[in-house]
Design a protein around this nucleic acid. Structure first.
Lengths: 124, 124
DNA sequence: ATATTATATAACTAAATGGATATGTTCGAT
DNA sequence: ATCGAACATATCCATTTAGTTATATAATAT
């Protein structure tokens, strides 16, 4: 799987609130399909489909315990999604800082104009 | 917009490689629609649709400069997605540590059995 | 006024998603 | 051998997505 398509699959998986809840639950430890389904007002096959998507995306893997198919988190792809966001967060913050700096500059200039026109500082 | 559906929209937006590339480009600063479209082998309306999704998800906003509609990043929803992942990363890592601890324990036990059976330590 | 540039909207298509119900399959229990 | 539990698969449906081409709108340039 190409890195891009891995990210596609990971973010697609994260786009559904049911799947995010399942992942959140699995962050606490393994769970069977029935256990995972229990909180949701949704049929068991619907949950199985979500789990299949999560498995194809590599976000979970499954074992075997009698009839149970315990699911567990696979953290790697999630870490990559996290990395993607982290990598750009720096730039977004830098952008924010530039914007902040610009606003400060505009504000200072406006104030300077006011001061000049009025000959005194009336605050803001 | 509920926090969950904001995350839905954000992760849905991030699930497409074209949109991720657009966001990556915008992390460097504002850009017009044409500029954003230029790297892609895709029609202009296709890009406009991607931008519309990004805008509806609150990930970008648009200004006006003559005929241009410059797009700029809105970092807030991305920060929330980042937070979601960060929040669970801790737990995933904790899981890893538990797994490591378990493996260490099993290995130690296996070694103890070996030692007991053979009366000496042959290493591993 | 008209032509050009930049962008948006409409209408259409194919494929993917998210759900349902119905039916298989697998494995332990009786 | 059969029953029940846990889970998967099949089929169906409505909606969304991602792209297309064709056309409309908005603002500038001539």
């Amino acid at each position: 799987m190409t890195p891009a398509s891995q990210l596609d699959a990971t973010f697609t998986a994260l786009a559904d609130p049911t799947r995010r809840a399942i992942l959140a639950r699995l962050a606490l430890g393994e769970a069977s399909v029935t256990e995972l389904a229990q909180p949701f007002a949704m049929s068991q096959p619907a949950i199985s489909k979500h789990l299949k998507m999560l498995e194809r995306a590599g976000l979970i893997s499954r074992g075997r315990d009698a009839q149970r198919r315990p699911c567990r988190l696979e953290a790697q792809p999630l870490a990559e999604a996290n990395d993607w966001l982290e990598r750009y967060r720096q730039l977004w913050e830098a952008n924010f800082q530039r914007l902040d700096a610009l606003l400060d500059e505009m504000k200072a200039q406006a104030k300077a104009v006011t001061d000049k026109n009025q000959g005194k500082n009336q605050g803001e």
